[in-house]
Design a protein around this nucleic acid. Structure first.
Length: 359
DNA sequence: AAATCAAGCAACCGCCGTCGC
DNA sequence: AGCGACGGCGGTTGCTTGATT
């Protein structure tokens, strides 16, 4: 049983608004206000538009002090940071950026920022094989939509920014780590007894329905439930602080990018909030400036470093985060690459993400 | 010059929460 | 408490425009 439509669709105009319609709507609202009833508004004005459409037009384009385009670097940082913290809660993000609308920010994120953050990759190289361990992953790749993999990549990357090991609760799936990294992770695991808010944060999936979350934790944590502290984290940001509410934790140490969030987690388990977001801010600054360093396992088990984003400015788009496949043939494509991370493509992982994304 | 492709963006759709009756 | 109306929101669609072949 569906609900009644908000208006008579047959007698409602759709599509772009004409200047006359804009003028009529604007004039009426400026003179009379919305009257608290958007559904009745178009009738009063004499517009053949759905009330929701009027509301959207007013909120996104006609109301005063709306800004379009020309996002500043500071706005980029805020959007990215908040996206990592709370996900696609565009209205909340928009509330932090005066003059910006949720729709504008959403479009900006989807068309530009996301690519800036994660890089643009080829689309065609979808059915790659795992060249490291010989496991063929085609079946899994085929079973997933490109969109789902993009979201998977994005979420994994963002999760890794927030806490580099947050999305793999099974260390056996991880790529070989630098001994120091392994030691740090062991230390953190020992702290992860459910009382540590940082570790809770690391295991949080902000977009998942509670039922899915429960299922996930049932499988991985013996049913232990964890609230979503990321919301609390955001709430800890004082309203008066209109400047970036972050504490920078910059470092010239090449280990910084992958380990700073971990070390900070250890140091600041009793002070979650700014500092953790601050490390994110530093990561974002690096990424937005194409400086992020990452570590990948090599065949000789030595640690190699590469500059994830160094070629983005060349519009070569040859970013390769986690795949050893340096297929430069496709470097000029503007599409997202759906090739899968070597060490991460396991059935278990996709099962986990299937829970989250209704693949 | 025409066709094709990709990016950007405005607008729509449908779900969900809230509120009033 | 139940129901319907409405507003708000996020995801998605489809049109427009510019770039590339």
């Amino acid at each position: 049983m569906g609900r009644a439509p908000c208006c008579d669709k047959a007698n409602v105009k759709k599509g772009p608004w004409s200047p006359e319609e804009d003028a009529a709507l604007k004039a009426y609202i400026e003179k009379n206000g919305t009257g608290g009833n958007w559904i009745a508004l178009p009738q009063k004005i004499g517009l053949k538009r759905c009330g929701k459409s009027c509301r959207l037009r007013w909120l996104n384009y006609l109301r005063p002090n709306i800004k379009h385009g020309g996002f500043t670097e500071e706005e980029d940082n805020i959007i990215c940071s908040l996206y990592i913290s709370i996900g696609s809660r565009w209205s909340i993000i928009a509330a932090q950026l005066p003059g910006r609308t949720d729709n504008d920010i959403k479009n900006y994120w989807n068309t530009r920022l996301k690519k800036k953050l994660l890089g643009r990759r080829k689309q065609s190289n979808f059915n790659t094989k795992d060249t490291n361990n010989g496991i063929e992953e085609n079946s899994y790749s085929n079973a997933l939509s490109t969109s789902a993999l993009e979201r998977l990549q994005l979420h994994m990357q963002l999760q890794s920014l927030q806490n580099p090991f947050s999305f793999y609760n099974n260390p056996a799936l991880w790529p070989k780590l630098h001994p120091f990294q392994e030691k740090m992770i062991q230390t953190l695991q020992s702290l992860s007894d459910g009382s540590n808010p940082v570790m809770q944060n690391a295991l949080t999936f902000p977009h998942v329905e509670q039922g899915q979350k429960d299922e996930f934790y049932k499988r991985h944590h013996d049913g232990a439930k964890i609230d979503n502290p990321q919301i609390h984290l955001l709430e800890n940001i004082p309203e008066s602080n209109n400047e970036a509410p972050f504490v920078a934790s910059g470092s010239n140490n090449p280990m910084h990018s992958s380990l700073a969030p971990i070390t900070e987690a250890i140091e600041q388990t009793n002070n979650v909030g700014y500092q953790q977001v601050g490390s994110l801010q530093t990561e974002l600054d690096d990424i937005l400036n194409y400086r992020t360093i990452a570590y990948v396992p090599q065949e000789d088990n030595q640690i190699a470093e590469f500059d994830c984003f160094k070629e983005m400015n060349d519009s070569k788009d040859s970013l390769i985060w986690w795949s050893n496949d340096s297929d430069t043939k496709s470097a000029s494509s503007n599409s997202w690459d759906s090739s899968t991370p070597t060490a991460l493509l396991t059935q278990g992982m996709f099962q986990d993400y299937e829970l989250r994304y209704s693949l």
